[in-house]
């Protein structure tokens, strides 16, 4: 596998073979990953083969039972739902966020930083207060409903709070900045002259956009998709509050094993399988990404 010339996402053709210094400099990050990602994962792996006592303490007694339960179709359905919500959220975030990132990147430098900060500042308020503010807007006799009623758009009070639609609104709101910021990071370096050159060659704005701009900002788009889609799969606090907690997400199921059911070994098994599925999917995506861009 290491024989392949370019293996990682970021390999550039100019990448060097690391000598001593390359490894020394990378060491702190590697140590961090080992200590705070690999070791905890190993602890979980051990837990997932254990049983528990009546107080919920882990008992080191080997069992496969936790893994037998993980593959119950019910959990697959829940996982499917979580992935569906996350995918929809990612799609909407991309549509909403791309033009914003592009627009910000076209401004003068101090305006750019200023706008970027403005994107993020709403999220420095408390999560719960923000979510309750959304509920005030979306509730049956709330702001949005009142506005639409008085404009005559809808005949009866809006019943959107505590539905999947409200959950999606909440998710999109929460993750939008994580789409805008990475795209901005890669759109900022595009030269205005380049875009105009594409234009001068006879491409209309739509073609210039889709054939020049989008491909050039693709690394940012891919990063944005990664930063929105992946965390959104495990999200459940927003879906519970705004969607009414009527359907479980994979995040709920895992969370509840630790917090409600007192079943840490099963929670650990779910966590391990969930993480492994991600690792496999991510690795496949990396390979395909490589082979399509030789």
């Amino acid at each position: 596998m290491q024989a392949l010339p370019s293996t990682s996402l970021t390999d550039s053709p100019h990448a060097l073979r690391p000598r001593v210094w390359g490894w020394v400099l990378l060491a702190p990050m590697l140590a961090w990953l080992v200590l705070f990602v690999l070791v905890p994962m190993a602890i979980l792996l051990v837990y997932s083969f254990c049983t528990r006592d009546d107080l919920g303490r882990v008992v080191f007694e080997f069992t496969f039972e936790n893994y037998q339960r993980v593959f119950d179709p019910i959990y697959l359905r829940i996982l499917g739902r979580s992935i569906g919500y996350a995918a929809l959220t990612t799609g909407i975030c991309l549509l909403m966020g791309y033009p914003v990132a592009w627009f910000i990147a076209r401004q003068r430098e101090n305006v750019r930083n200023w706008l970027l900060l403005l994107v993020m500042i709403p999220f420095w308020t408390s999560f719960l207060i923000r979510t309750y503010a959304w509920m005030t807007i979306l509730k049956g006799n709330g702001l949005l409903s009142g506005l639409l009623l008085s404009a005559g758009v809808i005949p009866a009070p809006l019943e959107i709070l505590y539905t999947p639609a409200a959950a999606i609104i909440g998710l999109v709101y929460a993750y939008l900045p994580f789409m805008i910021l990475p795209i901005y990071g890669s759109a900022e370096k595009l030269d205005n002259a380049l875009v105009e050159a594409a234009h001068d060659l006879g491409a209309g704005p739509v073609r210039a956009f889709s054939e020049v701009i989008v491909p050039l900002t693709w690394p940012g788009i891919a990063a944005g998709i990664l930063l929105v889609f992946v965390p959104a799969i495990g999200m459940f606090a927003i879906t519970d509050l705004m969607g009414g907690a009527r359907v479980p997400m994979i995040g709920n199921v895992i969370h509840n094993q630790f917090i409600k059911a007192g079943n840490q070994p099963f929670g650990a098994a779910l966590g391990i399988i969930f993480t492994l599925m991600f690792v496999v999917a991510y690795t496949l995506a990396q390979r395909r990404g490589r082979s399509s861009h030789p």
Binding site: S8, T10, P18, V37, I250, G271, F278, Y282
Partner: peptide, 20 residues
């Protein structure tokens, strides 16, 4: 640099984002 295991390292970096 082109590290050995760089793809594994890359994946490992993303694991905390998926871990509930």
């Amino acid at each position: 640099y082109r590290y050995r295991f760089s793809r594994t390292i890359q994946t490992l970096i993303c694991v905390p984002m998926i871990m509930p």
